[in-house]
Write a protein that binds this DNA or RNA. Structure first.
Lengths: 249, 249
DNA sequence: TGCGCAACTGTAACACCTTACAGTTATAGG
DNA sequence: CCTATAACTGTAAGGTGTTACAGTTGCGCA
């Protein structure tokens, strides 16, 4: 239950994990170390608000994955719901679901049990580029049996979820995944920042000391790089991907 | 070093913490429990990208706070820099700062030592409404003395940083702070979401099955509620505050 | 020297957003 | 019953964004 060598070894492993397989092995190792039977990592990268790039690294039984996807459970999964609304870890047992009011979420957890995901916990993940994710671990044993050890493992698991996600972040910048975050020039970021503040092209040109045409030029280039079809979308993407540096002060 | 009763007590305290004073006491308790002398919590809420609402709850010596603010160290503080770029905890000792290249960050840490912040760690915080924050704990003892216990405390501290931030989130919704996140109607959120996707008023009207004038109407109302002076700014604020639900799939 | 690229500038037509005017319908709460 | 609010619709003038045209300057790199 959290001796120093345990988590240190897993952190080292996370810093070296390479490729999707490396992260799969890392999650497997974490899962085993803390006495779980299954895991799943899922994260959403805001390439688009409507259709984000989603990466799932699954250590779930195939039967459950197929059932889950076929029924569109992602939209009603109470663990996912919790992790998008809160940054606190969730121990599944703590969910208070009324079968009448929360019918669908209740069904998801009920059926998960039948597929061998009896007890478990979900860790909320939020990246520095607007990513929202979940890392869940589950056991085939009952909550009564696993509760004490899950309680004890939560701090370690929460920390490790950050390291797992950072390892995924490295995949992105290395280009191992079909989504590479665009790089903007200084001027493009400056123009986007002021556009996001509601300034017009002319106002931006006065702020930056350039001609109005040049401000328009930079904003167009930024939109092209972001695959945006309008200034509005460019602003939305830049903000959601954290490309516009919001100052801490 | 992390017996169950220790962190459980602090988590309970965080769930009941009320008001800024309650959170100040909570951070103090965490600091003492894990053998630190000072703490500081700082978070930035994206009311505006240029001028966000910033909340600081300080357990730092007044002399250091004044010195820090007078010299504008927030912009060059390497701990703050790290926490805005990464979600991993930072143990100050692990910073590799070259006095020649990283002159200003080096100076910040050097002077911090002279004010009694000798060794410590910073935990990155990211909230579900676009908040970016830092929770730091520091000791007057040297890194050599504190390293083992800091290493051991990191998982607990990282978890507690989430609970501290959630407690701050409760202050916001309770209206105890001079910033209340606006509430949008369903239609306003829908229109904003599609506007953020780069759709024009006419396209949004076709998607939602309403007249173009009505789409414009909802977007104007949304902009008014968000204190935005244009549709661009409304989109930027809605995205940065997480008011537009980006689906996990 | 040549190449790519960031940064810069201008004009013109057309599409789009903003503002201000003036309404209707339905639902929830005092 | 009255008020507030969500949701809905229309017109018109004027400001702003988008696209496509055609350039210049300066820097770093092969």
């Amino acid at each position: 239950m959290g001796s120093r060598t345990q988590i240190d070894g897993l952190i080292d492993m996370s810093l070296q994990a390479d490729g999707v397989e490396g992260i799969q092995q890392l999650c497997s190792a974490i899962s085993e170390t803390y006495g779980f039977d299954h895991f799943i990592y899922g994260a959403s990268f805001p390439t688009s608000l409507i259709k984000p790039f989603v990466l799932v690294i699954s250590g779930h039984p195939d039967a459950w994955r197929n059932h889950y996807q076929a029924h569109g459970y992602l939209a009603v999964d109470p663990a996912v719901q919790h992790c998008t609304r809160s940054i606190r870890p969730l121990i599944w047992q703590d969910l208070t679901l009324d079968p009448k009011i929360d019918e669908k979420p209740f069904t998801v957890m009920e059926e998960a049990r039948q597929f061998g995901l009896v007890s478990g916990a979900s860790l909320s993940i939020r990246g520095s580029r607007g990513e929202v994710g979940v890392l869940s671990f589950s056991s085939e044993r009952t909550a009564w049996q696993t509760r004490p050890e899950i309680d004890g493992a939560i701090p370690d698991l929460y920390l490790l979820s950050a390291y797992v996600h950072e390892a995924v972040g490295r995949l992105l910048t290395q280009g191992s995944l079909p989504f590479n975050p665009p790089e903007l020039t200084t001027r493009e970021r400056e123009c986007l920042l002021w556009a996001a503040e509601g300034k017009t092209s002319w106002e931006i040109s006065r702020i930056l000391g350039i001609s109005e045409r040049t401000a328009i030029f930079h904003l167009q280039n930024a939109a092209r790089r972001l695959n945006a079809s309008s200034r509005q979308q460019a602003v939305a993407l830049a903000v959601s991907q954290g490309l516009i540096s919001l100052q801490l002060g």
